[in-house]
């Protein structure tokens, strides 16, 4: 009996250590448009100060491989948060394939291949229809390496 418990404990400990080798951090920013001296405008990602309906919020999701082995088939999936809509063209990630879902994550496709039913007709999905965004890394993440993906939503 005592032996069994020890075994279970060590298994649990092992899985904890293994999973900790790839870590994920998720950080939220307030995205504001600032006007430069020459009149041009650009987005700036700031620490969230106050966030109001209609304003934009950016998420940066960082994957770090802190283990000693490369991690492969890395896929980062992120449901579009409730009360927000995805901002078209905002999802970015180096060396990733970015796909979206309009059926709550059952299937993913590129924007051009996403369709929804609207008034009985099959129409091209718009950014506001997206329920998930997914990044698939094109190559394994080496030990000690990290990569960051990002996207922006607008608060309803």
């Amino acid at each position: 009996m005592i032996k069994n418990i020890t075994l279970a404990l060590s298994l649990a400990l092992m899985s904890f250590i293994v999973s900790a080798e790839v870590t994920l951090t998720n950080t939220v920013f307030e995205v504001v448009t600032i006007t430069n001296k020459d009149g041009s405008q650009q987005d700036q990602w700031q620490q969230p100060d106050k966030i109001l309906p209609g304003e934009r919020v950016g998420y940066k999701v960082e994957v770090s491989n802190k283990g000693t082995e490369p991690a492969a088939d890395i896929v980062i999936a992120n449901p579009i948060p409730e009360h927000t809509v995805y901002v078209q063209g905002s999802a970015k990630g180096l060396e990733t394939q970015i796909e979206f879902s309009v059926d709550n994550g059952k299937t993913y496709a590129l924007p051009a291949e996403l369709f929804i039913e609207k008034d009985g007709e099959r129409v091209q999905a718009e950014a506001a229809d997206y329920s998930q965004v997914r990044w698939s890394l094109n190559k394994p993440l080496a030990a000690g390496a990290s990569t960051t993906v990002q996207y922006i939503v607008k608060i309803k």
């Binding site: 999973s19 994920l24 998720n26 950080t27 966030i51 991690a71 980062i76 992120n78 449901p79 993440l141």
Partner: peptide, 25 residues
């Protein structure tokens, strides 16, 4: 506004996943 990202990956042939959440009002 709650956001939970999930990463799935394989290493040495076995698959695993991690989650990270962030929330604000």
């Amino acid at each position: 506004i709650q956001n939970t990202a999930t990463v799935s990956f394989t290493r040495n042939g076995s698959s695993d996943s991690e989650q990270a959440s962030v929330s604000f009002k």
